[in-house]
Design a protein around this nucleic acid. Structure first.
Lengths: 212, 212
DNA sequence: TAGATTGTTAATCGATTAACAATC
DNA sequence: TAGATTGTTAATCGATTAACAATC
């Protein structure tokens, strides 16, 4: 299968949520490209292109089967293959992520929570005991963990990332605002909360300047 | 001033962080488009286009002034105008956001934290006392608050959003995975954690399928 | 001056939308 | 059949990159 465009990939979770919720809420079996386009605020042609990209075939005059959309998205995104991950930094944000109820559905399994702070080590976070950061590398190696979630401070981000990569991690999910240098073969995703606020702040700024 | 492209806006926080950190770390006064391109993994021409878009002029043979970049980005994004916001849903994620230390720098000011759960009302979150949700509308009206941050459950997302809009909110920052319908004049940003994980999961899925 | 970097136009690339045929 | 919706090619649009002149 050809690799799928990044922009398509980014839309899949929104399709997924809406279709799954429709099934749960009113037993929907069929959804049209027009309906999905409404949800994303886009064109129905784009939806059909997306469905074609992930190999979902619709039925002319009818629409797309909800269960087919769900199962294909799960397959494409690898939701049915469990992805074990370590989380480093058991602060508030780390705790929120460990406890986020939806993640199990996507196949994300937090295999261990680590922190360097002695006051936090040994406490429970989302049903897991916080372990000393010094033991993270062993856990990664023993369980062949590929993903690390970084919720440490910006200052320690680079140091932690380097240690994780050395231990065998190939993907990083970075929630710190710090700058991290990684070798090109490592996949890193920056989840900068500031980017989200920035967009809203700019919008509000514009309505102030131009008059609302 | 012309509106600035969404994609440019999304890059500004990354420039901002890097330049600010460079100033703090080693007193940098000048940065070149090539250096900034390295950070974003992009082309130096793109950086120069971005600088032109926000009205920062560089000096040929020298580079761009760090302080000028910082002050222009702050101005464009409205960081120096305080943006008061209400946060609804004082769970773990809500708590993490209220306590996020960086936000004050961007001008985000949490003016009130609200929750519908009696067990949570009255507790302290990030230095603020959690107030009953029923009082949120009054606070919004009294303080002319324009932004609401939603960290409630997916199930109550729509109901809360509707109430916020009725009270006068014009921008929503939605951290719930639920689907929310809003009138077109309302700016809504969906901060779906699943989108981030999805991208990483797809990458890991691909390396599994194609052999790494 | 020579050289390094910015500034800007033109070219390319990729993603979205339009048009319309195919299907049931 | 008529009509509604998918499927797919072509056109458009926008964002990125290439090329090169301008500048100090």
């Amino acid at each position: 299968m050809d690799p799928i465009n990044r922009s398509v990939i980014a839309r899949l979770p929104r399709y997924y949520h809406f279709v799954r919720d429709s099934i749960v809420a009113n037993g929907a079996e069929i959804v049209s490209s027009w309906q999905l386009a409404q949800i994303l605020g886009s064109d129905d042609t784009l939806v059909r292109h997306d469905m074609a990209a992930i190999g979902v075939k619709g039925q002319p005059r009818v629409g797309f089967r909800c269960d087919e959309i769900i199962s294909r998205i799960r397959e494409v995104l690898g939701f049915d293959v469990q992805t074990p991950a370590v989380l480093v930094g058991a602060g508030r944000l780390g705790g929120a992520i460990v406890s986020y109820p939806g993640f199990a559905e996507y196949g994300l399994k937090i295999a261990g929570v680590f922190d360097a702070n002695d006051d936090i080590i040994g406490t429970m976070v989302g049903g897991l005991e916080v372990q000393p950061f010094t033991e993270a590398a062993d856990v990664i190696r023993e369980q062949s963990i590929e993903l690390a979630i970084l919720t440490v401070s910006a200052e320690s981000a680079q140091k932690v990332a380097t240690a994780m990569i050395e231990a065998g991690i190939i993907a990083l999910w970075n929630f710190t605002p710090g700058h991290i240098e990684t070798p090109p073969e490592i996949k890193i995703r920056h989840e900068l909360l500031s980017v989200g606020f920035t967009e809203l702040s700019y919008y509000l700024q514009m309505t102030r300047v131009n008059g609302s």
